[in-house]
Design a binder for these strands. Structure first.
Length: 613
RNA sequence: GGCUCCGUAGCUUAAUGGAUAGAGCAUCUGACUACGGAUCAGAAGGUUAGAGGUUCGAGUCCUCUCGGAGUCACCA
């Protein structure tokens, strides 16, 4: 890292002394040299040719000369078509390897004094977590780890959507059809138990609706209101919400229950607490399986009335305005958005009011000047509006807001639908990938080892997590449960396997008490070794990029590249049977550094390394 | 319809405006018998949806066209 800064400053100075021109630091582009050329880092000289009034190759040679005479670590250079390739000395790389090995916090930035809150998962309490939550959780968790490594103090939170019509449906369903059963008496995991009653409610509603469609009332409605060319089936499909609100007895009961909940009716509250506690026990298990955790939970039942004070502020600041009916609005048409209601005429909150209030509450709770919301991209517009309003209100954290928007996970058949039973359950998914890992291990004639179950768990989860994190978050993802996840090629297990290979080496080093001291005497770097050194050197920068872009896929792709280089190194060069003791020592040290960085990098993704596989 | 995002090999995808667009899967060829083959080497596969433009340089920026998705509730 430091060397790049040194090179950059030196290039600026070179341009100044050679051509008498000063230029902005951003004009100096330094990147790792492409594999097909010799060199370690490359300076693009095109931005300077106009100032120098010389041909690109001449400018490159002159700057190269300057760098070589002024920076001891620069050993050689070459210029090809306007690209200045710089070769760093063997001594530099030896120094770097030792410092990377000796620094337990390699790649970790000093604390920057800023706090960032990361909100992720944010489930509803009427059903278990599914595939979509898995992607959300993996993104949220790894993003938190990355921001922490990049220097922030991170607070991980989720907002639990624990109130509203949905949970009332589960509650009512349990009251009517539950016969007093509990997760304990049935042995069903709490979140699944509650989710089953939600599904049952939807089934009962469907039955009621189908019966109702046979009634004279329904027939008359269809006759009076259907559009020409509209079939009876289509008409009733469109009519379902209205039917549920105006005609359904189950619908009436649910609304009644919601009213009683809002009024604080003791029996309803007790039931609500009971059912939610079942769900939370289930969630805890799933989160533990996924290896994610939270510092604080926010509950919608506590926040859904928030935001009134912020609305008052907005009115005072003329960011909001009140209509004659008493409702409060914000006009964002000058920013390309719409007019949005922020408070109903009856004085109650809407969705965005809650989010406004919750943001302010969080700032008061933690003083976090940055907030990241991990939420699917279907809410892009909502967050654009939310952030715009907070900026206009001049909230102190308004410029540290980021919506980590990710593409929905869909199945080959389309979006997952609870009602159609096409939801891929998170628990099932985790069990499935571990089962596949076990099956694969058996096929490979895996020998009996200690901690076999733990290793298989890490391999299976490693495959799943890497599969979901390696692609850019914003990309929509089609997940085929049939094919599930691969264990070969660009996968988690591929990377784990390189780590396992090194682990084997290290155990042998320990057993045979190998002397590592001559490592620094080795100078005849092979290309495979140089690739590894260069890759290791990239790590801290990759973490910063991932943090800046809120994109863990950079880490995943980096780890894959490092593992790939290691596998090649392993195949081409012998470690224990190296020609010279210093070569063996160096390769062992290099391997140790690779395993260290792979462990750290994969750790940022929440992926653990198996001892053996 | 308005706004936003997306379109890269058969499939999944990578690429701070920089060199001959880089990988994996699938297909075809090869490489052990253990420093572990969940590996490695090689072949084949691309008009980066299309057309213009800006630039020394465009998958990347701008305009238009085509195709896909999301959103445009006093729901959350």
């Amino acid at each position: 890292m430091a060397i790049i800064q040194t090179l950059q400053n030196a290039v600026l100075k070179a341009v100044e002394t050679l051509y008498g021109e000063t230029l902005e630091a951003e004009k100096v582009q330094i990147s790792p040299t492409s594999p097909e050329f010799t060199g370690d880092y490359t300076v693009v000289v095109f931005p300077f040719v106009k100032l120098a009034k010389k041909a690109p190759d001449v400018v490159g040679a002159e700057i190269g000369d300057f760098l070589q005479t002024n920076i001891p670590d620069v050993q050689a250079f070459n210029v090809i078509k306007g690209f200045l390739n710089i070769e760093l000395s063997t001594a530099f790389w030896q120094k770097f390897l030792q410092s990377a090995l000796n620094d337990p916090a390699f790649g970790r930035q000093p604390r920057n004094g800023q706090k960032v809150m990361v909100e992720y998962s944010s489930p509803n309490t009427n059903k278990p977590l599914h595939l979509g939550h898995v992607r959300n959780c993996l993104l949220g968790w790894s993003c938190s780890q990355i921001l922490d490594t990049a220097g922030y103090d991170v607070i991980k939170v989720q907002i639990v959507n624990d109130r509203g019509v949905a949970i009332c449906k589960s509650m009512l369903s349990w009251l009517k059809f539950g016969e007093g059963k509990t997760p304990e008496t049935t042995g069903i995991k709490g979140d699944h138990f509650v989710g089953d009653f939600y599904v049952l409610f939807e089934q009962k509603t469907k039955e009621e609706y189908e019966n109702w469609q046979q009634s004279a009332e329904a027939g008359a409605l269809f006759a009076a209101k259907h559009k020409t060319e509209q079939s009876e089936k289509d008409f009733f499909k469109d009519f379902k919400n209205k039917w549920f609100n105006d005609h359904s007895s189950l619908g009436a009961e649910v609304r009644d229950m919601l009213l009683r909940w809002e009024a604080g009716d003791p029996d309803t509250i007790a039931l609500w607490k009971q059912m939610n506690s079942w769900v939370y026990q289930g969630f805890d298990t799933t989160y533990a399986k996924l290896g994610v955790a939270f510092d604080k939970l926010y509950f919608e039942s506590d926040t859904y009335l928030l935001g009134k004070d912020i609305v008052e502020d907005g009115l005072k600041k003329n960011v909001f305005y009140r209509k004659d009916d008493g409702s409060v609005w914000v006009d964002l048409t000058d920013a390309g958005y719409d007019q949005k209601v922020v408070l109903r005429a009856d004085g109650t909150s809407v969705y965005i009011t809650q989010d406004l209030g919750t943001a302010r509450m969080r700032y008061h709770d933690f003083g976090c000047e940055n907030m990241v919301y991990v939420v699917a991209d279907e809410q892009n517009y909502h967050f654009a509006v939310l952030f715009e309003v907070l900026r206009r209100l001049e909230e102190p954290y308004a410029h540290g807001l980021h919506h980590l928007s990710y593409g929905l996970v869909e199945l080959p058949t389309g979006r997952m639908k609870t009602r159609e039973g096409t939801v891929v359950d998170a628990d099932d998914l985790v069990d499935e990938v571990i089962r596949i890992a076990r099956e694969q291990a058996a096929e490979r004639g895996g020998t009996e080892v200690n901690n076999a179950d733990e290793n298989l768990r890490r391999v299976g989860l490693g495959a799943l997590k890497f599969f979901m994190i390696k692609v850019n978050p914003k990309r929509r993802m089609i997940f085929n449960p049939e094919e599930s996840v691969d264990l070969q090629g660009q996968t988690g297990p591929y990377i784990q396997y390189s780590w396992v290979r090194i682990n084997g080496l290290m155990q042998r080093v320990k057993k045979e008490n190998v002397d590592l001291s001559p490592a620094t005497a080795y100078t005849d770097f092979q290309p495979q070794e140089k690739d590894l050194l260069k890759a290791l050197h990239e790590y801290p920068g990759v973490v910063l990029t991932a943090a800046r872009e809120y994109d863990p896929s950079h880490i995943a792709n980096y780890c894959y590249g490092l593992a790939k280089s290691y596998h090649r190194f392993w195949h081409d060069l012998s470690v224990f049977n190296a020609d010279a003791p210093e070569a063996r020592a160096f390769r062992l040290e290099l391997s140790r550094a690779v395993s260290k960085v792979l462990g750290k990098g994969m750790g940022l993704l929440g992926i653990e390394m198996p001892e053996r596989m």
